[in-house]
C-alpha cells in the first residue's frame, strides 16, 4: 500500500515536471486563471475550460508514452492503473490549487458586499465547491485515461477526447438551462447530482452524490488499467484480438 502511494506520487511529480515544460499549456492555465478570478460566478464555465485543457495534456502524455513504447518499460515496473492514477493526480493537484485560488479571490470579492460575519459560512461553501469540482475534474480525466488506454491509433484517441468533450459540454448546458429544459428544477437537480457527468455543474452537492462519483472513478480507472495493458501492443497496428 505504502509502496503504491509512493509510486503514484513519483509518477505525479514526474508528470508535473513534464507539464511545466509545455509553455503553451502553462500560458493557457495562467490566462484561464486570470479570467476566472476576474469573472466570478461563472465557475462552471471555467471548470469546463480547465478540464478540457487538462484532458488534452493527459491525452498527449499517454499517447506519447504509448507511441514511444516507453509505456512497456513502465508497466514492467508497476501496474498501468498506478501510471494512470499518478498522471491524473498531477492534474488534480493543479486543478485544486487553481480552484482554491479562484475561490479565495471570489470570497475576498464578496466581502465588499456582505457582512464579515458571513465569512466563515461563505468560505465553507466555497471550500466544499472546490472539492466537488475536484472530484468532477478527476472523473472526466479518468474518462480521458480510459479513452486513451483503449485507443489503438492516434485518431481514435482524438475521437475519444471529442466524445468526452461533447459529454461535458452537454452536461454543462443541461444544468445551466435546467429551468428551460425541465419543468421541475428541484427534482431534476436532485437527480443530476447523482450522475457523475453532471455532478460538478450542480450546486449544493452532498456527500452521497460525491460517493457515487468516487466509486465511478475507481471503477473506470481499474478497467482502464486492464485495458491499457491489453491494448498497449496493438497501438499503431492492425486489428488483432487476444485469445
Amino acid at each position: 500500500m505504502i509502496n503504491s502511494i509512493r509510486i503514484i506520487w513519483l509518477v505525479a511529480k514526474n508528470e508535473m515536471k513534464q507539464m511545466f515544460r509545455q509553455r503553451l499549456f502553462v500560458f493557457l492555465l495562467f490566462i484561464l486563471t486570470i479570467c476566472a478570478i476576474s469573472d466570478p460566478g461563472k465557475e462552471n464555465l471555467y471548470f469546463m475550460f480547465f478540464v478540457l485543457n487538462f484532458s488534452m495534456a493527459l491525452f498527449r502524455s499517454i499517447a506519447s508514452e504509448k507511441e514511444s513504447r516507453l509505456a512497456e518499460y513502465y508497466i514492467s515496473i508497476f501496474s498501468p492503473t498506478k501510471l494512470l492514477l499518478g498522471k491524473i493526480k498531477a492534474y488534480a493537484i493543479f486543478f485544486f490549487v487553481i480552484s482554491l485560488l479562484i475561490n479565495i479571490c471570489a470570497v475576498a470579492g464578496l466581502l465588499r458586499f456582505v457582512d464579515v460575519s458571513f465569512l466563515p459560512c461563505v468560505s465553507m461553501l466555497c471550500g466544499w465547491q472546490v472539492f466537488v469540482q475536484l472530484l468532477g475534474c478527476v472523473f472526466y480525466l479518468s474518462l480521458v485515461a480510459f479513452g486513451a488506454s483503449y485507443s489503438r491509433v492516434h485518431t481514435e484517441m482524438q475521437g475519444s477526447i471529442f466524445v468526452i468533450a461533447i459529454l461535458m459540454v452537454s452536461s454543462y448546458f443541461v444544468v445551466e438551462n435546467l429551468a428551460d429544459i425541465f419543468g421541475n428544477v428541484l427534482l431534476c437537480e436532485t437527480l443530476l447530482k447523482y450522475i457523475p457527468f453532471t455532478m460538478p455543474f450542480v450546486k449544493g452537492v452532498g456527500i452521497l452524490p460525491m460517493c457515487v462519483s468516487f466509486v465511478a472513478i475507481i471503477f473506470i480507472l481499474k478497467f482502464s488499467g486492464k485495458i491499457y495493458k491489453k491494448r498497449l501492443f496493438y497501438y499503431g497496428k492492425n486489428k488483432i484480438t487476444e485469445g
Partner: peptide, 18 residues
C-alpha cells in the same frame, strides 16, 4: 523482475539524470 524491452522508448524531453 527487471525487464529491458526490445522496442526501447525513452522520454526524449527529460534530462538524463532526472
Amino acid at each position: 523482475v527487471s525487464y529491458l524491452p526490445e522496442e526501447r522508448g525513452l522520454p526524449l524531453e527529460q534530462k538524463v539524470f532526472d
